[in-house]
């Protein structure tokens, strides 16, 4: 029965590939590089292209999804990394005993909150706050210098909001593993540093953190992988752009994961089944990307001796 675990993963990969095959035949690889997702004329008779049936004028370019996915995830990591590292420093160096347990528990609870509840909170709390006050202020200050931050700030749905929500969701991963690593540092290392006259923070900066470089890189990539596949929260705050690339940091975006979720209803209307197949192609692509990212992260973490 134990074999069912690896078999289920293989089954997911194989069946997604089979389901995506008609779309792969129709799209080739060009679909990766243009932003033109169009299900075609639903009321016309299907035509045959490359040996498969599709609706006239159907097109499945997903460049805007790839850009949206990468931008939101990298931006999220950019926010989450310093936040997670500093929070870990606070927990490991600033707190001890029951206070540390309680503090760590608070941060780890962030990882337990369901994604859709983050979406709800982002939709009802974050979007009005950011859209009405923070973003106009950002545009008025940084926006004068950097065009990415300039007007129009939109309604609050978009790239920056999605990244902030994602950052909060992946922070616990970084904090928990770094905290454990700092706490587990041999006392002799600390004492050696202190005896040379370094302060506590200098020991941390010069001795402890440099020793955790691999762990930090590995866990960041792991967090990136988590952000790439996040669906519901992004779906609710990203504005779900179609066929458009963001010009400013406030513009609506779509990610591969959220697009699969939002497009299934309309894809089911396609009588040729090509739209469902094209979504399977996106799912396959997303799976390949996250598997590659995760395998890289696991490899690095394994080398750093950290195993969850």
């Amino acid at each position: 029965m134990a074999a069912l675990l690896p078999l289920s993963l293989l089954a997911v990969a194989v069946f997604l590939f089979l389901s995506a095959w008609p779309a792969i035949q129709f799209n080739g690889f060009a679909f990766l590089l243009h932003s033109n997702w169009n299900l075609g004329n639903m009321y016309a008779d299907p035509v045959t292209v490359h040996g498969v049936q599709v609706l006239p004028r159907a097109n499945y370019g997903v460049w805007f999804l790839i850009v949206g996915t990468l931008l939101t995830s990298f931006l999220a990591l950019l926010f989450a990394f310093p936040l997670g590292v500093f929070a870990a420093i606070f927990l490991a160096e600033g707190l001890g005993g029951p206070a540390r347990t309680l503090g760590s528990f608070l941060i780890e609870l962030l990882a337990a909150v369901p994604s859709v509840v983050f979406g709800l909170w982002g939709y009802l709390v974050l979007i009005p706050a950011l859209g009405h006050t923070v973003y106009p202020w950002l545009a008025d200050t940084i926006g004068r210098v950097l065009p990415w931050f300039a007007e129009p700030t939109g309604s609050g749905y978009g790239l920056l909001t999605a990244s902030i929500v994602l950052a909060i969701m992946v922070v616990p991963l970084i904090t928990a593993s770094l905290r454990d690593a700092i706490v587990a540092t041999p006392t002799a290392l600390r004492e050696a540093g202190m005896s040379l006259g370094a302060t506590r923070m200098e020991v941390l900066r010069r001795v402890i953190l440099p020793g955790q470089k691999r762990l930090l890189v590995g866990v960041s990539i792991l967090a990136l992988g988590r952000a790439l596949g996040e669906t519901m929260a992004v779906l609710m705050v990203s504005g779900n752009a179609l066929n458009s690339l963001p010009h400013t940091i406030y513009d609506p975006v779509s990610t591969m994961a959220s697009f699969i979720a939002s497009q299934l209803d309309s894809a089911m209307q396609d009588p040729t089944g090509m739209a469902v197949s094209a979504l399977a192609q996106i799912a396959l692509l997303l799976m390949l990307i996250s598997v590659a990212v995760n395998a890289l992260a696991r490899g690095l973490l394994w080398m750093s001796g950290y195993r969850q």
């Binding site: 690896p6 289920s8 069946f15 997604l16 389901s19 596949g229 997303l286």
Partner: peptide, 28 residues
Amino acid sequence: ITRFLSDVLVGVPSVVLGYFGYVVMVIG
């Protein structure tokens, strides 16, 4: 290999698993 595949399975986005369930069980 099993352990590695298990780690990989943790990293597969849940929406991908859902779409797999859709094409295989709901439709297939």
